[in-house]
Design a protein around this nucleic acid. Sequence first.
RNA 1: GCCGGAGUGGCGGAACUGGUAGACGCGCCGGACUCAAAAUCCGGUUCUGGCGACAGAGUGUGGGUUCGAGUCCCACCUCCGGCACCA
Length: 869
Amino acid sequence: MANSSYDPAQIEPRIQAQWDAEKAFEVIEDPDRDKFYCLSMLPYPSGALHMGHVRNYTIGDVISRYHRMCGKNVLQPMGWDAFGLPAENAAIKNRTAPAHWTYRNIEHMREQLKRLGFAYDWTREFATCTPDYYRWEQLMFTRLMKKGLAYRKDSEVNWDPVDQTVLANEQVVDGRGWRSGAVVERRSIPQWFLKITNYAEELLAGLDELDGWPDAVKTMQRNWIGRSEGCEFEMTVCDADGNPDPQGRAVRVFTTRPDTSFGMTYAVLAPEHELVPLITTADQKAAVDAFVEQVAQSSEEDRLSAEGGLDKRGVFTGAYLLNPFTEKPVPLYLADYVLMGYGTGAIMAVPGQDQRDWDFAQAYDLPIIRTVQPPEGWAGEAWVEDGPAINSEWLDGLEVDEAKEKATQWLVERGIGERKVNYRLRDWGVSRQRYWGCPIPVIYCDRCGAVPVPEDDLPVVLPEDVEFMGVQSPIKADPEWRRTTCPECGAPAERETDTFDTFMESSWYYARYCCPGAEAQVDERADYWTPIDQYIGGIEHAILHLMYFRFYHKLMRDEGLVHSDEPATRLLCQGMVVADTYYREDADGSLHWYNPADVDVERDDKGKPVGATLRADGEPVLIGGVEKMSKSKNNGVDPQRMVDRYGADTVRLFSVSDSPANQSLEWSESGVEGASRFLRRVWTQVMDHVAGGPCEALEPGALNDAQQDTRRKLHDTIAKVTDDIARRYTFNTAIAAIMELTNHLARFDGADAQSRAVLQEAWSAVVRLLAPIAPHIAEELWRALGGDGPVYRAAWPEVDESARERSRVTLVVQINGKLRAKLELPPGATRDEALEQALAVENVQRHVGDKTVRKVIHVPDRLLNIVVG
RNA sequence: GCCGGAGUGGCGGAACUGGUAGACGCGCCGGACUCAAAAUCCGGUUCUGGCGACAGAGUGUGGGUUCGAGUCCCACCUCCGGCACCA
């Protein structure tokens, strides 16, 4: 094999077959070794891999292979998030069953992953749409029902009145059903929820312990949970004169600013509030009914588009509430800016201290009383910052924090209210009115109500061999599937036909990988592997998936299934893959997008792009800038084509070489060629070295300067690459350092025996440093260098600190902070020695001239700054 | 509006703890090899002036701290991401 040229198409499948034969990446629990669980978020089997997958899985594979070489017992599994709406859409389009489409895609994508050489333990693979998997989440759900952590309540859905079906949000296009084109209605139907809010405090507090998670993700989750402290108190309904409601009704409000209560000039109920029909006065009934109807009609989108809330709408109920602080009545309104889903669905309004209340008060001509003194010259509207209380009787003069505390105590002591913590987080609605999902294991009996399917009757299997037309779920359309008997009373009953949100499957898959075949959701093997040591996935999952995943881990912990509090200790969110876009504009203004692979770019003589033409017709196209790879901008690059053309190692190398893992990666064909060129150079250089025959043993004490320099460079590089991969996730700088070293080795002229020994040490290290990133070529070169066993099992190179010691260091000489000279000195030079040497340099003398040296800053072995003036 | 993150050559990016700004790669320019081209190899490449040694300027803008600032502080501008009437 001496000097054959680098041919990835020939090498890579052969190496992959070898790994398969050796069962190279199959692992079992081993209590005597440190484990490392490295997990990339599992893919949805959409049909083919895209570059985002390649980048995600390459990052995971680099980390996995690195830790394996460091001697860890590494688990890196892979599977399929196989339920979901796209399968239903594809089923309609291709006239096949969703299951068939899904399994076929899995077959294809598995082959693609294998062709990329990822070190997965394929014996642990599963698809979440199989009963062997989802039966366990059905079991967990029935247990949660019994614990009261799963409950049913009415909630709104999108209803297509023509197709008579519920639509997912993605199926609503401009307020109309995607198939029927009918205007979508809001309908309230009973749905299942999991009480994630019971865990709000723990989910929030746990973030403080997750040192290995990006701050961005933790911040987003904190905001999403949205904890706020305040108090809830009651106000009695009354008339304009303060005479109490004969029925003794009262309204509870939540506020974070009890200190401002003396400035309450009105109060507001959400339009959906249960008291609305009960307390509205006869003369206001017509107006209130009209308003409630108007709000109900306006879709979610309308309410969202009125964001920022300039147009706050409302109506007077005719009723009043008695402000306990002033014992005076304030008018009670309905308004669309008060949400039923947060707090109590009712607020006290203090326009002086709340901008929304200010806006509403202006629009409805309500009085404004300031209760916090704004600073001098304040010309704004509501004042929401700190300041002394005013117009507040016994609170006057107190700062906000003191006044809050005093007002709260006052409410508590009188039994009017209590301290209360509220969360923005809502319970997790898990019902989906779709077919292709895990059936919710519930039976409805007229007598017994909603009954969980008994554990022995699980799983409730979703039929896979179905006709799917897209109008209605086949299990909803099939009365036979629904029909059953009540497990409690034996009377005829019906099954739930809704299925779970697919986030349910992806909330616990990581634990199932640990224990294939377990006769429980997970078994004790999960305690060996979890928590995940390194989790990798896109930032788009920062909130939903990563919150449900943490929640579900705690649910499993509380069922005694796992014994840690958090599912993953380190999280890396990789950046997106982006690419140039090119387009033409038609006469009618519509844009046509052209794939970067079909476009030639023209540049000026500085290399700046000045135009682009479509290769097919030679006519110009416009440059549209860099965007996330997408179908709509036609700037996607097919990984398969890249692997076919350049090989898996090149694709892997490029996908981590051009930017840090957590930043976006700009795809460029010439960059890929650069990666390919680098691998070919390494190949040629190693093979040239190997062609020189066996090397004698290295004698570190007997090396000349050039040989020592090379060893220093080598061991500096090993240290840097190790730190970059293990700690910093900066594979780009790791690769740059390896390239620098190979450039150095190419110039290292060594035909004598010790030079060849240095080169042998160096190449053997370079090949191992590259092995996590480009494992196939590394395997081949490792063998050529006479390495022991396969490179994936070889030991990660160790740093020889003695090789890094320097006989000369570069001392930078500055005059008044400006670089004027560089000195090569032995390490450890004193300030005076350095100064003497520096002043001997002509350029330094020239800049010092006859000026006085006022100060000398000396950073040993690094820098000397001479301050003159 | 609120909360994050980021602005550095022609481009992607490097500079990790306040100490040589521009590593590495791409692109571009020049050269070698070749009948020629591709591939490969060698050299150059922040801007301005100079044959050069060198000098001046330079990390979004304006201030500040410091012997020294891409890095720290203050104010502002722009872009990206998240949340969006959460009382």
